[in-house]
């Protein structure tokens, strides 16, 4: 980050700190590993005998139409909220990072509200607002709610990537007679699109994973995948949940790996 700190010699971390780090990673990853391993184990034949390896839970997941329906719903909601949040957020990030105008500070502050406000408050405030506006609770209201918190993350991500953007390139294009539209699509967008992609991926992941805000704004009968998993856990534990959770883990891991893929010369935004 700051260039100066890099060159300085760094001491080795004490063994106790390393042990604590290892312990923390155990706390984080052992439960996830247990979840995955148990998704491949069938019920044992009585106490004392080890569980047998099986794919039966995965077969159950893929033949459960309710689960597939909620997966479809999650993807649909994720897609539309990502499109909405990315367009709105990118436009705002461009203006916020590159111009100064009255109210800029206020808007910067508001951008951070969804990050710091407890999710439960965001969820129930939107529930009351939607009911007041007579917007039927369902997938549409979920998408509106998801766009609201995703826009903030898109703005922050795209802004971070815009930092250090060379304005003179656009100036050169304008001087050479390009229209504003041409400048945007031929010069600006190709330069900022990695940031836009990062923002879009983040918006999708957040939407796909969101539980609490969806919980409040979903109404009756519309289940996204996290809501479905929650109710499955509430109504009894079956290893079908392990299989489904494992699939979700794999999907999110793949997204994150793509997000954090080693890229030379481009700063990774966390």
């Amino acid at each position: 980050m700051s260039g100066a700190a890099w060159g300085r010699p760094r001491p080795k971390a004490p063994v106790a700190a390393k042990a604590m780090t290892a312990f923390a990673f155990l706390l984080i990853y052992v439960p996830l590993a247990a979840l995955v391993v148990y998704s491949f184990l069938g019920p044992s034949n009585g106490p004392g005998t080890p569980d047998a390896g099986t794919l039966v839970w995965y077969e159950k997941v893929f033949s459960n139409t309710q689960i597939l329906g909620s997966l479809y719903a999650s993807l649909w909601v994720g897609l539309w909220s990502t499109v909405g949040a990315t367009v709105i957020g990118t436009a705002a990030a461009l203006a916020l990072e590159r111009t100064r105008f009255p109210g800029r500070g206020v808007l910067e502050g508001i951008v951070h509200v969804p990050l710091i406000m407890p999710e439960i408050v965001l969820g129930l405030s939107m529930l009351m607002w939607f009911v007041l506006l007579r917007i039927t609770l369902g997938y549409f209201s979920i998408i509106l709610a998801h766009i609201t918190f995703s826009v903030s993350y898109v703005i922050i991500t795209v802004k971070a990537r815009l930092h250090g953007f060379d304005d003179s390139l656009e100036e050169a294009a304008r001087d050479l007679g390009a229209s504003p539209w041409q400048v945007f699509w031929r010069v600006t967008f190709p330069l900022i699109w990695p940031g836009v992609l990062s923002g879009a991926l983040m918006a999708f992941t957040l939407s796909f994973d969101d539980f609490l805000i969806t919980f409040f704004t979903a109404g009756v009968g519309s289940d996204t995948l996290p809501l479905k998993i929650y109710s499955m856990i509430k109504f009894g534990v079956s290893r079908e949940i392990n299989a489904l959770s494992t699939l979700m883990l794999v999907f999110t891991f793949a997204l994150v790996m793509f997000f954090f893929r080693p890229s030379k010369g481009v700063k990774t935004v966390t």
Partner: peptide, 9 residues
């Protein structure tokens, strides 16, 4: 980035 319901489970 993984779902927190999944992590709790």
């Amino acid at each position: 980035w993984t779902n927190f319901v999944v992590r709790a489970y």
